[in-house]
């Protein structure tokens, strides 16, 4: 049974359908990457999984249990973590406080988890007392991911974690995503940097016009000349 599964999902904003039947499945230690052209519904799909928009058809399951259209905070309780693309930190709170907010529902585990997060993101340890809003873009992204991991999620949703970052930071973030996934957390992320992201992906989903165009392992997609031609810029 897959950890997270989406079956023929339809949905959109204000009566306008953006998703027209998306299928996805990832296992517990896998990285799933959603790529595709602008307007394909990549971020919309991620938001649909996290209950931020109403799904009008299809089903989403977490470990086999239906979670379609559950409210975000219910999903957080069930072990889902979400990192939005923008506004994903508390800028006036210190790094440590940001992490603590991630574990708001499990106050007893804060210090142990904080140590784990600092192990995954070493740069954060030195800045732990600094307001998160003063950090660089890459470090903010680390804070955002760390905050989501503090809840010990079984699946982590990342919306374009490398948007606007320099190539150096981008690689660092991808390394960290790999490390997170190695601890047994399923990762589903949307990425603009399709080639690099597919390199670390166990599963790749190429969306176009709100539907799966190609679904395969990351390697296979990278090797597929059709995918390369239409979606990876040759």
């Amino acid at each position: 049974m897959p950890l997270l599964e989406a079956i023929d999902v339809h949905g959109g904003y204000g009566g306008m359908n953006i998703l027209n039947g998306v299928d996805m499945a990832i296992e517990a230690d896998e990285i799933g990457v959603i790529v595709g052209p602008n307007g394909a519904g990549k971020s919309t799909m991620l938001k649909a999984v996290f209950g931020l928009l109403t799904i009008t058809g299809g089903e989403i399951r977490l470990r086999g249990d239906p979670i379609t259209n559950l409210a975000p905070h219910k999903l957080v309780e069930r072990g889902m973590g979400f990192v939005p693309q923008e506004k994903n930190i508390f800028p006036s709170l210190s790094v440590a406080e940001n992490l603590e907010m991630g574990a708001f529902l499990k106050p007893g585990t804060v210090s142990r988890l904080k140590r784990q997060i600092y192990d995954i993101f070493p740069p954060l340890y030195d800045k732990r007392h600094q307001p998160a809003g003063e950090l660089s873009g890459g470090q903010r992204q680390m804070v955002a991911m760390g905050r989501a991991l503090m809840n010990e999620p079984s699946v982590l949703l990342l919306d374009e974690p490398t948007a606007g970052l320099s190539p150096r930071y981008m690689n660092e973030i991808f390394e960290q995503v790999k490390r997170i996934s190695a601890t047994g957390v399923g990762v589903l992320m949307v990425e603009q940097n399709a080639k690099q992201a597919l390199r670390i992906a166990h599963r790749g989903f190429v969306l176009a016009a709100g539907q799966n165009r190609f679904t395969d392992s990351g390697e296979a997609l990278l090797a597929d000349p059709q995918v390369a031609k239409s979606f990876l810029g040759g």
């Binding site: 996290f50 975000p72 905070h73 957080v76 309780e77 979400f82 939005p84 506004k87 994903n88 930190i89 508390f90 800028p91 006036s92 709170l93 406080e97 940001n98 603590e100 907010m101 991630g102 708001f104 529902l105 106050p107 905050r147 809840n151």
Partner: peptide, 20 residues
């Protein structure tokens, strides 16, 4: 904990909700 959560909500209400 609640005091920090209060500051967090003042910073970013959506993210506060998404953090549970």
């Amino acid at each position: 904990r609640l005091g920090k959560a209060m500051r967090a909500m003042s910073d970013n209400p959506d993210l506060a909700r998404a953090s549970g």
